Simulated assay, not measured.
Amino acid sequence: MSDEDLIDYLFDVLDPADRSLVAARLNADPSATARLERLRATVAPVLTAARTEREDAPEPRPGLALRTLARVAQHVVEHEPRKSEPAPSDLAVATFLREFASSPPTEIEFGSGTRAKVPADRTRTAPPVTDGPDPQSGRRLRIDLIVAAGIAFLGFGLISSGIVKARQQQRVYACQNNLRTLHNGLAGYADSDPQGRYPQIGTAAHPTADTFATSLSDQGHLPAGYRPGCPASADYIAYAYTLGFRAPNDEILGLRRPDALAPAGEEHDLMPISGDFPTANAAPGAGPVSPHAGCMNVLFVGGNVRTTTSPFVGPGGDDIYRNLFGQVSAGANRSDAVLGRPGDRP
């Protein structure tokens, strides 16, 4: 693995497939991990600046378009060619040339009184006379500059919009990859649990939704330094996590690993287990919202990650942030999916 690959990994410019390959190589090769840390220390200032710019993309200031066009117009007015006023001697010469052009003389008198005839075949039409620059040229120049400035501004706006969209999409991809890594840790935890259950919320050790990752980290199911939240956010934003469901005897249970031999109605691959916080429109109440503005990434038990703008992506169109009673609490039954934010309890 080259240093260029590691640098691209650090600056998060790889596509999801290549980034997954690099991450797998780092997990399997301690020497590559050591090289990555050395590079991270070397480019730390640049990396910090790039992360800040990526997470908080600057928006054009209000009125930038009008100020730009006004500045261009001012520059044109100050630098356009001016019509020069002819000197008195120039006016006399211009008058003579006009008269010469309208009726060419047959004789020319010199200062000594000597006269000379001008042959008829030697007379020439005088060139067009002008008193200064064409006043229309400055006007055309000004119009051309204003049109060019407008085109340049339009192009700048299109490019800026494309950059913002690309950065937003890159943040979504980064969080999707982080959720896939989280699924690997959850799967490892379920494999080691006698009943095949994922970390359960509501216990003395993990009372709220934001404590689920502690079990994974304590048992070594997550990579060193892994943060259970969106890594492309300016501030650390954790992921929402399942609050479990209530059994018929009112006992709160956590989700289990899907079993193909389990009876119908048991846990299945399409049950949401974690994801981004809800968007402002989908949030069931006050609290942190998705860092992706209008969309959310949702992780399902089967390992699939889906980007959605609607919270109704649970089994049968279930709202994944509220139970069947519209509450932020454990699901009313095994198929009622509810993801809780930090501080939420079953």
Rank of each mutant, 00 (worst) to 15 (best):
G317Q: 08
T114Q: 13
V93G: 03
T95N: 14
L39H: 02
A152D: 15
I143Q: 09
A92N: 08
A190Y: 00
V93L: 11
N184G: 05
I7C: 08
Q327K: 11
A70V: 08
L253D: 01
G138Q: 07
Y321D: 01
Q176E: 15
A152H: 06
S89Y: 10
A240D: 06
P278F: 00
P284Q: 05
D90C: 09
T106Q: 10
R51A: 07
L6K: 01
A65S: 09
N184I: 02
T123G: 08
A44V: 06
D210W: 01
T279P: 01
E251R: 10
L36Y: 01
L324T: 07
L69P: 01
D336V: 07
P86W: 00
P62S: 14
S290V: 04
D336K: 03
C175S: 12
E80S: 11
P16I: 05
G113I: 12
P315L: 15
T123M: 11
T52Y: 01
R227P: 03
V164T: 03
G287W: 00
G63D: 09
H268I: 13
A247M: 06
R345T: 14
Q195R: 14
G162D: 12
R115I: 08
I7M: 14
L91D: 11
V164W: 01
L324H: 04
Q136T: 13
D5F: 02
V298N: 04
A73N: 09
Q168T: 08
P128W: 02
V298D: 03
L10F: 02
P58K: 05
G254S: 03
A41P: 04
N323Q: 04
G132E: 03
